[in-house]
Design a binder for these strands. Sequence first.
DNA 1: CCTTGGAATATTGTATGCAGTTTCGAATTC
DNA 2: GAATTCGAAACTGCATACAATATTCCAAGG
Lengths: 230, 230
Amino acid sequence: MAKRESNVDRVYEALRRMAADFAFKPDQRINESALSEVLGASRTPLREALNRLVAEGFLTFQNNRGFFCRPLTPSYIMDLYEARVAVECEAVRLACTRAADEDIAALADYLNRMEPEYESATDPEELLAMDESFHARLAQLSGNSELQRILNNLNGRIRYIRLIDLKRMRDRAGGKAPGDISAHRQIVEGIAARNTEAAVSAMRSHIEKRREEATEAVRIAFSQLYVPDE
Amino acid sequence: MAKRESNVDRVYEALRRMAADFAFKPDQRINESALSEVLGASRTPLREALNRLVAEGFLTFQNNRGFFCRPLTPSYIMDLYEARVAVECEAVRLACTRAADEDIAALADYLNRMEPEYESATDPEELLAMDESFHARLAQLSGNSELQRILNNLNGRIRYIRLIDLKRMRDRAGGKAPGDISAHRQIVEGIAARNTEAAVSAMRSHIEKRREEATEAVRIAFSQLYVPDE
DNA sequence: CCTTGGAATATTGTATGCAGTTTCGAATTC
DNA sequence: GAATTCGAAACTGCATACAATATTCCAAGG
């Protein structure tokens, strides 16, 4: 069997990670030749991958000037969080109406199985992965693949900020990041009870609670990004 | 002044129009060489544009097999409509909270100025353009550029179906497509009154009303797409 | 010292060529 | 006649080359 994954896919994945982790600094111009050398591919597949990332909002593009890392502003982050509210609340609403009982139960199970790990984890990356995984599964309950797709995109772009946020909370709380699993459980219980209003409002306040924290996190992100650590 | 618009932009715009109007039939394989000749560009910029369209959900891609027109299924259309509900309802919600009175008034004005044209128009394309324009302006009131971006993408993908739908309604109603401007006015009035619940529910029912029609429209779209007219 | 002009340099934009893979059809077998 | 195999043709994947455009840098003038 020959290779199944193409070069542009590999490059795309690498770039998405780099963009999500802000390996590029906001507004930084991206040098294609240098990057292609780092990634071990020529400029042709690299540019194809870069174009995908532009379409997904991870990067920007200017004619004859090339690709840039997206800027990072408080209002941009706010927009992303608000879009998450829109998508996830509707997903919850749909899940209440149409998710199968067994699928809801499976998600509740997942939450229970995860709880020990979630409560004991201190690594922000790990926590974030679990959190994102929960939200993705929740979106799956809606049965709507567009909502899942949009959420995946938003989470990718919001990822770095959430990481900053989690690290900050861990440092404040003395080595313990806050595993806010009760909010998740509340949402799932609302869905299980087919109580649309309760579930939606639980989701809304869960996300909105993060929003002000995120604004603060952006400020911190700025200081981490613009004061180079090398 | 030299050219401001690059080749890939031009190609992208052309492709987006073609995809929105289903110049490609669902699941049809796209031949890069032939297409590049039609569009007057080499395969390199063409592929960059195609990659953007894949990222935006207009096309699909398979390794070593190339690009394909997206499939067209009732559940896919349903997903798009539901995503629209999510995005537009949240946009309305935000507009109620934070839009400036003068901007709301401007939208109401726009609606009034458009009304004669809207009521008298018989060309579905024209009607659709006006309708999309209204929804885009409404999303602008939210002040959230992510919601605007997502809506723009969803509308682009849903466009063909709405066109089929409008044409069908026109034919049924005897040369008169239904200018449902009252629903739009109701939404704007809700926002002007800062009555969030009223405005949101008006928006929700406005979009959802279209949904069942859309399912029927898909069936018709199928017959138009798979029975070639040439 | 700041500004301006303009070559030198670096970077992007796109065409082209070739290697690798898939697709298609004709010949072959059952 | 249907299924199968195999080779040719078509197509995609990617590297490379060169043209077009932007950026930098340095020198000259104010």
